[in-house]
Amino acid sequence: MINGHLVGLRARHADDVAVLHAELYDDVPTHSRANAQPWRPLPATGGHSPFEPAGASEKSACFSVVERATGELAGEAVLWGIDTHNRFAHVGLSLLPGSRGRGLGLETVLLLCHYGFTVRGFNRLQLETLADNAAMIGAAEAAGFTLEGTLRQSGWANGAFIDEVILGLLAEEWPGFNLPSAPPASAG
């Protein structure tokens, strides 16, 4: 588990799937804004949910976001579209409705950057979001990402075309993140 001050990133557990599916996937308006794929009615079981834990993949690293104070599931985070040759990945996250607006998104972005730059050795991380997603843009900019461009009317969400923005961060621009120190080892 990668721990920050407020949240930790851990492997997706089977128990997480029903919660993530109900609160993130079955919320059609929110899912439509957060995902480039159209919503379809899918059961949370039987390997159909997009939140089902998958085997190891070179193309993505999926995490569950957990609040450190309570141990409660707070959302999902992912590095996707991983390109090991060019040392590049895309950043994505989605917090449960009850976990939004408390600074957890910023720390999740920071932990994904730590994982991408420090653990995986990537050179570039990129984030795409709808241009009116002020919370995501604010978290990305606070983490050091730079607005690099706008893709006009490239997102289709809830019956309308919406501009998308691209934000990027290079390893050389990454200021690092002061992770909580590990407890001292016992002497005996």
Results as ranks from 00 to 15, higher is better:
T108C: 04
A142D: 00
A22L: 09
V66Q: 12
A36E: 12
V17P: 08
R33Q: 11
G8D: 12
F145L: 00
H114T: 07
A56P: 13
L95G: 04
D15W: 14
P180V: 07
E141A: 14
N35P: 04
V28E: 15
P175V: 13
V7A: 13
L106I: 02
G176I: 01
F145K: 00
G138A: 13
E141R: 15
M136D: 05
L104Y: 05
D16E: 12
T45I: 09
M136W: 05
L106S: 00
L170T: 11
N3K: 14
L110W: 04
L73T: 06
A182T: 11
H114S: 06
G8E: 12
F145P: 00
I166Q: 00
R124K: 11
R100M: 03
H90D: 04
H90M: 11
A157Y: 02
W80M: 01
T146M: 04
L111C: 03
S99Y: 00
E141Q: 15
L104W: 11
S99W: 00
A34E: 15
A187L: 10
N158H: 08
L106F: 07
N133R: 13
P38E: 07
G138Y: 08
C62G: 12
I2S: 07
P50F: 05
F88Y: 11
R124W: 05
P38Y: 01
L167R: 03
T129C: 15
M1F: 08
H114N: 03
A182R: 14
A143N: 06
S94T: 12
Q153V: 06
P41I: 02
P38V: 04
N178G: 05
L125M: 00
E72Y: 06
G105A: 02
A44M: 09
L110V: 02
H85P: 10
G71K: 11
I137P: 05
L95C: 06
E164Q: 13
G98R: 03
R100I: 01
A171C: 10
A131I: 13
A36Y: 02
